[in-house]
Design a protein around this nucleic acid. Structure first.
Length: 270
DNA sequence: GCTGCATGATGAA
DNA sequence: TCATCCTGCAGCA
């Protein structure tokens, strides 16, 4: 589940659910025992997201850094929580809810230097509301420095922070850009379109809690909510199926070690 | 019960 | 480019 929209949604939800409260912290699995003991009984002050990274601020100055990786997930339980699964790395209980974390790539207490080094490796975050034109310019500059295919560049978090495998395929489809086009050869107007589409789509995803890129009108549905499973995306995981716009067979390949899909007809910009 | 896969990232070679 | 680390669950038998 975790692309940037999910992470920002978690930041918002966790802030709403736990910030300002005294939190009971533990590590049922044991792999975060020392950190949990240090945080236990303290106040969670704020939660921030940058790209796919989460930063939990605690009174006294500690920061908990969480990165979900491919498998990580949070579960929130209001009231009495169920027994945590064996893989539950972190449990945080506030006044009304308990949040469990399992499968993260990172769950560590970090200092200001660590955080700075993490952030310095991240490109602009399309969900950072304080950015406007700067984000797009930074993305353009980052792309102009690379010859790798645009489809690979969008997954590189130092180029743009928060895009994952679903959005890279869907946004390139929406932009009509073929994934193989070298990053530094993507025309300015397409870079602009890509930035706008990413920001738009991630915002929608953050609000909805799921990725729906298909415009419902295009397939005869009334609203996004009416779209059934299997109707919500244009190309992702649709190998060989007809393109929703032109009917051509959706192509599949590999790029940056991950599967990628595109429409050979609609994505003709080279 | 077992297998394979997944919306991620890193470090070695 | 490859191996490796993180878990849970769908799809099988």
């Amino acid at each position: 589940m975790p692309e940037g929209h999910t992470i920002h949604r978690y930041a918002r939800k966790h802030r709403e659910t736990l910030a300002g409260q005294t939190i009971t912290v533990s590590s049922p699995q044991g792999r975060f025992s020392a950190g949990a003991a240090r945080l236990d009984g303290r106040t969670l002050e704020d939660v921030e997201a940058h790209g796919k990274h989460l930063f939990y601020r605690w009174d006294g100055g500690d920061t908990l850094h969480v990165h979900l990786g491919l498998f990580g997930r949070f579960r929130t339980h209001r009231g009495e929580p169920p027994r945590p699964s064996d893989g539950t790395r972190l449990a945080m209980t506030g006044d009304e809810a308990t949040i469990y974390l399992s499968g993260p790539t990172a769950c560590d207490l970090i200092g200001p230097d660590d955080e700075e080094s993490i952030r310095s490796r991240l490109g602009p975050d399309p969900l950072d509301a304080s950015l406007n034109g700067e984000g797009m310019e930074e993305l353009a500059a980052n792309l102009s420095r690379r010859r790798i295919p645009i489809g690979a560049a969008l997954l590189n978090q130092s180029v743009i922070a928060g895009v994952g495998n679903v959005y890279r395929a869907e946004v390139l489809f929406l932009a009509g850009v073929h994934p193989e086009v070298p990053a530094n050869e993507v025309p300015d107007e397409d870079v602009e379109a890509i930035w706008g589409l990413i920001r738009d789509q991630l915002r929608r995803g953050e609000r909805a809690g799921r990725i729906i890129t298909v415009d419902p009108k295009e397939i005869g549905a009334r609203t996004r909510r009416d779209l059934k499973r299997g109707e919500r995306l244009y190309v992702y995981k649709r190998t060989g199926e007809p393109c929703r716009r032109c009917g051509a067979s959706v192509a599949h390949g590999e790029m940056a070690n991950r599967s990628i899909w595109w429409c050979p007809t609609c994505q003709d910009r080279h």
